[in-house]
Design a protein around this nucleic acid. Sequence first.
DNA 1: AAGTTCACCTGATGGC
DNA 2: TGCCATCAGGTGAACT
Length: 289
Amino acid sequence: MPELPEVETVIRGMQSALQNRIIQTAIVKRHDLRRQIPADFTRRVKGKTVKNFQRRGKYILIRLSGDLTIIMHLGMSGRVTLDSQSHDGKHDHVVFITDDDKACVFTDPRRFGFVDLIHTADEKQYSSFRAMGPEPLSSQFTWRTLADAFRNKNSPVKTALLDQGNVAGLGNIYVCEALFYAGIDPRTPAGNLTAQQLRPLVTAIRKVLNEAIAAGGSSLKDYVRPDGGLGYFQHAWAVYGKAGQPCPACPGEEDCPGIQQIQQSGRSTFFCSEKQHFCEKSSISRDEA
DNA sequence: AAGTTCACCTGATGGC
DNA sequence: TGCCATCAGGTGAACT
C-alpha cells in the first residue's frame, strides 16, 4: 500500500487515536520481519507514553516518553488497524494495547515492513535516514535541489525519482503520475532535465502528493486507512495501471497512442508518449547545472 | 562507480 | 478443482 500519502494517512489516524495514551503492553508475535524486531521491544515500550508522530519519507516515527522512538515501515503490504476487534490474524505481527484497552495492530503479509526501536538521539545516524533526500512537501525541496541531485545522472528520471536519496517518499504510483503532469518522458536521463522541466516537475510532485493526502491515499488491493475507511485517490490516477486506455490529456487525438506500459529497473512505468516529451541532453542543462 | 537486477515473502489473478 | 506463471505500493545487497 504505502507511499508518502498512504503513510501520512496512517500517521494521522494513529495520531488521533494514540496521542498521549500509555502503552500498557506491546505483543510481538513475530520478530522476523524485514529487520528483526528488537528482542527487548516489549520490555522497553511498556508503560511509555505516546508523545507524538512524525514522518520521514515512508517511515513512521512514534515518539515515546523516555526519549525513545519507534520506527515503523509498512513495506509493500503493511497495514495498521486502530481499535482492532481481533489481533490473532495470520499476519498480525505486533499488537499495541493502550491504557484505554484498545488494540492497535501492525499487519504485514509479505513482511517487507518492520518495527524498530531507537533512542531518539540516534535518529540522525539511523541507516535509512542518513542518505535520505529532502521531504518533497517541505521548502527544502526545490527545482534547484533536484537539479543538484540529478546532475550528471544517466539513469532515467523515473528511476531517479524512486531513489529515496534524491527525494524522500515517492513510490511507483506517484512518480508515474507526477511525470505525466509534468509532461516528461520517464525514459529521459535525469541529468538531461533543465530548469524548464524541473520546475513543473516539482510542482507536479507536490500536486499529486497533496491531492492524494487529501483523498486519504490510494486504496489498492484491500488497503484501508487505520480507521477502517477507504482512501479513494486510486480513482484519480491518470496513468498508473491504465495501460491501453486513452490518455486523459489528449482524448480523441489520432496521434495519441494511449497509455503505454514499459519496464524500468524491473518496475512498471505507465506514460503517454504523446504528452510526455523526451528531453535530449542540451548544452543549456550543463551550463545551468 | 553508477546503474541494473535480484532477493526478500505472501497473496491475488489468469491461463490451461 | 488444481497447478503454474506472473505480478504487486519497497528496499538494499549483489551484481555488471
